[in-house]
């Protein structure tokens, strides 16, 4: 591709191959972002899509943006997302059942319609030839961008800076909670606990009869029901507690049976067995 002939009709075969492979990945990533039940999975899929997009930026000659996409977008912003997801509850899966009547069908209809219209619009515009960024990037992509930002787009740049500052302050204001009263002392807190009748002594340990010591297994009460107090509240909220009560009871029964066999106690039929003192009554 010579410098005189800026216009071109096709890219290299390598780029085409890359486009079709990575484009497929990007679309799958986007679909997974939408359809994954857990927010953390969605975030990871989105990160993958963004990395693919970064590669496409690079392929399109936007070297600076490609790097920024990876470093700032995927590296910083998506991590911020992950932080918030962790804060809210990383494993809380959304129910995929739609609650608003007709919302899903309308969304699908609008989406398909909008997509078809966009694709039709692009197809309708006769974009057969393209210029490429060779000449624009002649002095280096970053230098080219910088000269534009600090000359032609300097006002927009400054205003965007102001916007960022404002956003940072705004986020602080939104999440900051003003303390309106004196913090309670430990004595006051313990008095309050006594007054409210909360559970005072240390919580009972999880696990069943020392056979299970995992924190996600509730301890069993003498009648075989699991005790709420033995497991972490957060785990319970996430639905990550394993209930082993029936299993444990079965295990116990099997153990007793084995012990009887070992001790060669035979199972005695109830109707034939009568203790002498009981029979005499």
């Amino acid at each position: 591709m010579s410098a005189q002939h800026l216009a071109a009709y096709t890219t290299s075969t390598g780029e085409a191959f890359q486009f079709w492979v990575l484009g497929t990945v990007a679309v799958i990533g986007a679909l997974c972002t939408v359809f994954m039940r857990k927010a953390v999975h969605s975030a990871l899929c989105l990160a993958g899509t963004m990395i693919v997009l970064a590669v496409f930026y690079l392929a399109n000659g936007a070297y600076f943006l490609g790097i920024v996409q990876i470093v700032v977008y995927t590296g910083a912003i998506m991590m911020l997302f992950l932080f918030v997801v962790m804060l809210v509850g990383v494993t809380a899966a959304d129910s995929l059942k739609e609650t608003i009547k007709g919302q899903r069908w309308l969304a699908l209809l609008c989406g398909i319609g909008f997509g078809v219209l966009l694709l039709a619009g692009i197809g309708n515009a006769s974009l057969k030839e393209f210029n490429g960024t060779g000449q624009a990037n002649a002095n280096g992509n970053v230098e080219g961008l910088a000269s534009l930002i600090f000359t032609k787009y300097v006002f927009a740049f400054e205003i965007t800076g102001a916007l960022l500052i404002t956003a940072a302050v705004g986020a602080m204001v939104l999440t900051h909670r003003e303390r309106t009263e004196r913090a309670k002392t430990q004595r006051e807190l313990s008095e309050q606990r006594i007054r409210e009748g909360t559970y005072i002594p240390p919580l009972p340990a999880p696990g069943v009869y020392a056979r299970h010591n995992a924190v996600d297994i509730a301890g069993l009460l003498p009648d075989g029901t699991p005790s709420e107090l033995t497991v972490n509240k957060t785990l319970r909220a996430r639905g990550q507690i394993r209930d082993v009560s029936t299993e444990a009871l079965n295990d116990l029964r099997a153990l007793e049976q084995r012990a009887e066999e070992r001790l060669e106690r035979r199972a005695i039929e109830p109707e034939t067995f009568k203790r002498p003192e009981e029979a005499s009554k």
């Binding site: 309308l106 609008c110 989406g111 319609g113 909008f114 219209l117 039709a120 619009g121």
Partner: peptide, 12 residues
Amino acid sequence: FGGAALLVAATL
């Protein structure tokens, strides 16, 4: 979104 789709359609 529906309105945006209609606008696109109208433009086209």
